[in-house]
Write a protein that binds this DNA or RNA. Structure first.
Length: 852
DNA sequence: GGAACTGACGTTTTT
DNA sequence: CGTCAGTTCC
């Protein structure tokens, strides 16, 4: 497993000599005659998916059916039958995590490291690699910078300003979103439909996109979308280059195919065609039929009108709906599950997987339907639910596991009670000996997490939040990287601008503006302008001196960078720039974590040969993950739960408007609803032994309490596999509603089942137009016991055991990793009530705070 | 350069 | 209602 917060190893270079001499065909075949170990234990479908090497293959792998196993076994099979050498296999995933997992498992399977699999990686890292080799063909240099979202937006802001566009009315963020969307769909500036380009900035959207692209070239930079889009352009404009890659890759494997966007599809399409000499068939566009699967329901929501593939002009097929047979498809194998496509809102096209056999004629479709994860009731519930979707290829998951416990549905009065009930159930599981690591709470929206965090802090129940900002998105990491970028590439204006006054050194907006003007006039980089200005008297002495000092520092660092190891350089830079000091002085709650992150950054640099190599990979390859494996409940969104599994899964918030989310319904109509339903399906199928669903009758939305209606998804569950239970949190919701068509779907039906004092009290509160937290003291406080396990968020400690018993007294000033500073206002055993300066009053177990 | 105020916003998130 | 970013004011 990866070490906590470690970067993955540097991707092996693709020009390594073959270190693994492949056996010739005969020997390999002889060896394959006996069942090789990697095939043993596969079920017939899995085996077929592994052994069908020729032609396009789509493996529809339902949740828990051994998807990764099939992929890795297939690679092992290709290698050991001698059909291809490691460097002839292109294997793409979406996330670094998935890529790492595959490398890891492949290594285990083959019994040695997979250094020889240079083309196993994410779409973006592979696209980026190819782009670096041929950078000059797309007007870049091979050391181009990969911009993160923040850089992107700052760049766009500059363009908007230069164009005199009010960025209140037309925010840069919005334009970034549009451009991203266009790139996801494989559209270069000239290919964006004019109507769409017009929606931004009074018709200037398209021009801005073009200007942005141009500016990127000047800066020798590419954004994430470019890594694919420019790759596609590279292939289209340079058939010989494309042919080289087509020849190289004998086999293509794609993971999570249901999440591919149009650009990724186009890229795969280009690479998967057999290279054809002397005719450009190989570089023509993909072939798409006219049938839109989504239209089959005849539902007329306007959102369904959007064309499934707005291909650029000249790319559209005239009449032939099917790919010309002369274009032979390579051995491409896509693995995915249409029922787990949950990234449509981000450009993923479920249609890619739904139309696979159309796009890749003659494709063999193999269904993996045997689930090795969940018990019978859970699987039945999930299957029944997802069967309500129309746009799906259809699979029937089955298990040979026991029936197990039924899926439970529990109603709670409000979200607070929901959290309390779940907290208690978790404690009960814990008492019964279950590991907290085997417990997950999966929420639809991250705001739901808060209630659980508060509750767990009170209970002293260790938890960790999965997701949130990635390592390289953190301000301190980007700042540090910016320094290194400027050293590496003095013309990196974006990086220079980022740190010119970080830490604060008295170079204000006025100075920066002056630099800008000068840079533009003289057509030079900002850093060059800074140097020039520092030699004139355009600036007051103070900023002038500071600026000169900064430039001198960069000169010095740049000289040093030639002589000393890059990790050492990084330490020197962080130290001499005053950056480390800035955080050391900072008294805020997360300063310590930031310093820790900086250390981790430096440590991670060791994995790379030099600064340049580090910078080239960092934007693409760096991610969170790992973290100490203390026993703790996992708290995350449904989206980030994909691919994970737990014995016990709690699914709160199953209410109309929240889940399915109103916005998905409003903006995407039926397609949106179906994606939400897939999300529900993903959620339930994460569970091995227990899946527990909850809904709250009242939830605070945007500050005001509103009454909610249980999710329609609850009604779509099969009665036989579901048990309706009473909330253990107190007032509870009686299960008297019974089964049938409207178990949950109308408020009266279950509202009437309330008869507890709690409900009445709340009812009274509601008639007053709302009620506060103190007004809803339902149930009892869960058994609170101090636990000594440290808490982590993404590997950062948020609470540490002090090892001492409660010896705080009233009025003590304390510090809490999550809530910051506060004062003890009440003591109840080992539980303290603390009035936090920022977070308000909270009950906290004493071991979670330290003296300030 | 930092505190204090104001206004907008309030799903999901990888690379 | 609460947060956060952006702005203003000292």
């Amino acid at each position: 497993m990866t070490e906590p917060n470690k970067l993955p190893r540097q991707e092996p270079r693709h020009d390594l000599p073959d270190h693994q001499p492949m056996a010739g065909g005969i020997a390999a075949r002889a060896r394959a005659a006996a069942t090789p170990p990697y095939l043993a234990g596969l079920n017939p479908e899995q085996r077929e998916a592994v052994e069908t090497l020729d032609g396009p293959v789509l493996v529809l792998a339902g949740a828990g059916t051994g998807k990764t196993r099939v992929l890795t076994s297939r690679i092992a099979h290709i290698l050991s039958t001698g059909r291809a050498r490691p460097q002839e296999i292109l294997s793409v995933t979406f996330t670094n995590k998935a890529a790492r997992e595959m490398k890891h498992r492949l290594g285990q399977m083959l019994g040695h490291a997979v250094e020889g699999m240079p083309w196993l990686g994410t779409f973006h890292s592979i696209g980026g690699r190819i782009l670096r080799v041929h950078a000059e063909l797309v007007q870049l240099k091979s050391n181009f910078t990969v911009l993160d979202v923040d850089d992107q937006i700052r760049l766009l802001k500059q363009l908007l300003q230069a164009d005199g566009i009010d960025d209140k009315r037309w925010p840069a963020r919005m334009l970034a979103g549009l451009i991203d969307g266009w790139k996801n769909r494989g559209l270069t500036p000239s290919q964006v439909p004019s109507g769409e380009a017009a929606v931004f900035g009074n018709g200037r959207g398209g021009k801005l996109y073009a200007a942005y692209q141009e500016r990127l070239k000047t800066l020798n930079a590419a954004d994430f979308g470019d890594l694919l889009l420019e790759n596609i352009r590279l292939f289209r404009e340079n058939p010989d280059v494309l042919r080289g890659y087509q020849n190289r890759f004998k086999f293509i494997l794609v993971d999570e195919y249901q999440d591919t966007n149009v650009a990724q599809y186009l890229w795969l399409r280009l690479l998967s065609q057999m290279s054809t000499r002397g005719n450009d068939a190989a570089v023509t566009s993909p072939h798409r039929g006219e049938v839109d699967m989504r239209s089959k329901s005849g539902e007329g929501t306007p959102t369904d009108e959007r064309s499934p593939y707005p291909l650029p002009d000249g790319e559209r097929e005239q009449a032939s709906p099917v790919a010309t047979p002369e274009i032979r498809q390579k051995n491409i194998c896509c693995v995915g599950d249409d029922d787990q496509s949950i990234y449509g809102w981000r450009g993923a096209e479920v249609d890619n997987i739904l139309r696979f056999d159309h796009d890749f004629p003659g494709a063999k479709v193999i269904r993996l339907e045997r689930n090795y994860r969940s018990t019978g009731h859970i699987l039945a519930a999930a299957s029944h639910l997802i069967a309500h979707n129309e746009s799906r290829l259809g699979k029937t998951l089955r298990t040979e596991d026991v029936e197990g416990e039924k899926v439970t549905v529990t109603g709670a009065w409000d979200s607070e009670e929901e959290a309390r009930a779940i907290g208690e159930e978790i404690e009960q599981l814990q008492r019964a000996g279950d590991k907290l690591n085997e417990v997950a709470i999966l929420v639809r929206a991250s705001f739901q997490m808060r209630e659980f965090e508060d509750r767990f802090v009170t209970l002293g129940l260790p938890y960790r939040v999965i997701g949130g900002p990635r390592f390289y998105e953190r301000a301190e990491i980007r700042d540090a990287l910016a320094y290194l970028r400027v050293i590496n590439s003095p013309a990196d204006d974006l990086a220079f601008e980022r740190i010119i006054n970080v830490p604060k050194r008295g170079i204000g907006d006025a100075t920066v503006q002056l630099l800008y003007d000068h840079a533009r006039k003289q057509r030079m980089s900002l850093a060059a302008a800074a140097r020039a200005i520092a030699d004139t008297d355009e600036l007051k002495p103070k900023p002038r001196g500071t600026l000169r000092g900064l430039m001198d520092s960069f000169d010095r660092w740049r000289v040093q960078s030639q002589a000393i190891p890059h990790t050492e350089l990084a330490e020197i830079v962080l130290d001499e720039s005053g950056y480390t000091e800035m955080w050391q002085k900072d008294r805020s709650a997360d300063a310590a974590g930031r310093l820790e992150n900086l250390k981790e950054l430096v440590r991670s640099m060791e994995e790379f040969e030099n600064l340049q190599g580090f910078l080239e990979h960092i934007a693409l390859v760096m991610d969170r993950d790992g973290g100490p494996e203390e026993d703790a409940v996992s708290l995350m969104t449904l989206h980030s739960a994909k691919g994970l599994e737990f014995n016990n899964v709690f699914l709160p918030g199953w209410e109309e408007g929240l889940f399915p989310h109103q916005r998905a319904l409003d903006e995407q109509g039926r397609a949106g609803l179906e994606e939400e339903r897939r999300l529900a399906h993903v959620g339930i199928t994460r569970a091995r032994r227990r899946a527990k669903l909850y809904f709250a009758t009242n939830r605070r939305i945007h500050g005001t309490w509103s009454t909610t209606v249980p999710s329609r998804f609850l009604d779509e569950l099969p009665a036989d596999n579901v048990e309706i239970t009473e909330s253990k949190g107190g007032s509870g919701w009686g299960g008297s509603g019974g089964y049938g068509a409207s178990r949950f779907d109308n408020l009266e039906a279950f509202g009437s089942s309330y008869s507890t004092p709690g409900w009445q009290r709340a009812q009274a509160n509601r008639s007053r137009g709302g009620f506060n937290e103190a007004g809803t003291p339902y149930g009892t406080d869960g058994g609170s016991r101090a636990r000594r396990a440290p808490l982590t968020i993404e590997g950062e400690l948020i609470a540490k055991s002090t090892g001492t018993t409660s010896d705080y007294s009233l009025g003590d000033r304390v510090f809490h990793q999550k809530f910051g500073y506060g004062r003890v206002v009440r003591i109840d055993g080992n539980k303290l009530s603390i009035a936090f300066d920022k977070a308000g009053e909270k009950k906290v177990v004493d071991s979670f705070v330290q003296r300030a």
